[in-house]
Simulated assay, not measured.
Amino acid sequence: MSNGQPPTMKDVARHAGVSVSTVSYVLNDSGPVAPARRARVLDAVRVLNYAPNEAARGLKRRSAPTIGLVVPELSNQFFALLAEGVEQAAAARGVLVVLCAPEAIDGGESLNGRLLRSQRLNGIIYLSGASTSPTSLLELTRLGPIVLVDEQVPGFDLPAIVSDNRRGAREVAQHVLEAGHRKIAVIGGPEGLWTAQQRLAGYREALAAAGIEPDTVPVFGGSYRQESGTELAAKALSGPSSERPTALLCANDLMAIGVLEYCRSEGILVPEELSVVGFDDLPLVSLLTPRLTTVRQPARDMGVRAANLLFELIDDKVDVPAPEPFPTLLQIRDSVATPLGSS
């Protein structure tokens, strides 16, 4: 070129007498071009000694394999650990991860949906939240393979990586019952979530096995957030002291932490006056006072398995078997004791 600069795609288009898009179609083999025009473009490339900018082409094509990861929020350590597992598996394969946390911003789900749709993604890992929109999820299914993790979504026949929530809830409720508690209340998760339903079912199985009619046990539906546990503890413990529950089964650790916060503010001793259990086994709960009895589910391992399953689906391994739920593990610590007045 006369100015000493390397030729551009515009120069090729001008020399060949075609549009820039036509040059792009020829060079990337990405669109129909008449044979005569194709010949003129290739001749211009030869005459001008044009060399495509491979870095720019790579960016435009997103040649690096890329997956999307949708999480409700990252303030919950459980979701953060799942995300770590996904990133670990992706990094091992040289795959990029586009992270979206819909609840972090106003109108987040629709905005993040647009962001994901604007990317050339090979697949998506989806952690369902309480505000999940079936319409948004349906839109995302059109982008490529999707793997759900931690939740299952009614109406969607999608592969899911989950833990055995029902068994875990049953075992922690059995532990509370074996300590002698009969006046029990549940601080459950959001009504529409599969995990909340499974955990409530597990609690009820344990209650029924102990001869307690499950429908007589009050259930307070929470949001899985810490402040929800605080608010619902006030409701659950609002009656006369003789009628209050002696144990609260909390459907996740964050709400259990909220319960402990309420008890401290009201001078209620845990576990002497009230036993409290959670679910998830977040790293911080073994550092609390008292240390929280809870159910461990392997968040990071679930993230790794979800990513590896997605990679198999992306590779068109259509006969991938449905993964078995991860086992849960009861973690007995210091937040459960025999109720006062028990012999």
Rank of each mutant, 00 (worst) to 15 (best):
D11I: 02
A16Y: 05
V18F: 11
N28S: 09
V33G: 10
R37T: 04
A39K: 01
A39E: 08
R40A: 11
V41G: 05
L42P: 01
D43L: 05
N49I: 05
N49S: 13
A51W: 12
K60T: 00
A64G: 02
A64H: 13
T66D: 00
I67W: 02
V70S: 07
E73P: 01
S75T: 15
S75W: 11
N76H: 10
L81C: 11
E87L: 13
Q88N: 11
A89H: 05
A92D: 14
L96Q: 14
V97L: 12
C100F: 03
A101H: 04
A101I: 04
D106R: 15
G107C: 07
G108M: 04
G108T: 04
E109R: 03
N112I: 07
G113V: 05
L115V: 14
R117M: 14
R117D: 02
L121D: 09
I125Y: 06
G129M: 05
S136P: 03
L137N: 06
E139Q: 12
T141L: 10
I146G: 11
V147M: 12
P154E: 11
F156S: 06
L158H: 00
L158P: 07
D164A: 08
D164R: 07
A169E: 04
A173I: 08
A173R: 06
H175L: 13
V176A: 14
L177P: 01
H181V: 10
H181P: 02
R182V: 01
G188A: 14
G189Y: 03
G189H: 09
L193E: 03
W194D: 09
W194L: 01
Q198S: 01
A201G: 00
A208W: 00
A210C: 07
G211V: 00
I212F: 02
D215I: 09
V217T: 00
V217G: 01
S228C: 09
A234Q: 11
K235M: 12
L237V: 04
S238I: 07
S242A: 15
A247Y: 14
L249T: 10
L249N: 14
A251W: 07
I257Y: 06
I257G: 04
E261L: 11
E261C: 15
Y262C: 06
C263L: 08
R264V: 10
L269S: 15
L269E: 13
P271K: 04
E273W: 10
L274W: 12
V277D: 02
V285D: 11
S286N: 09
S286L: 08
L287W: 06
L288D: 08
R296V: 05
Q297C: 03
R300V: 07
M302N: 03
V304R: 13
L309C: 09
L313Q: 09
I314A: 08
V318A: 15
V320L: 12
V320I: 12
V320C: 15
P321T: 05
P323K: 13
P325V: 00
F326G: 13
Q331L: 09
V336T: 03
V336W: 04
A337Y: 00
P339T: 12
L340F: 03
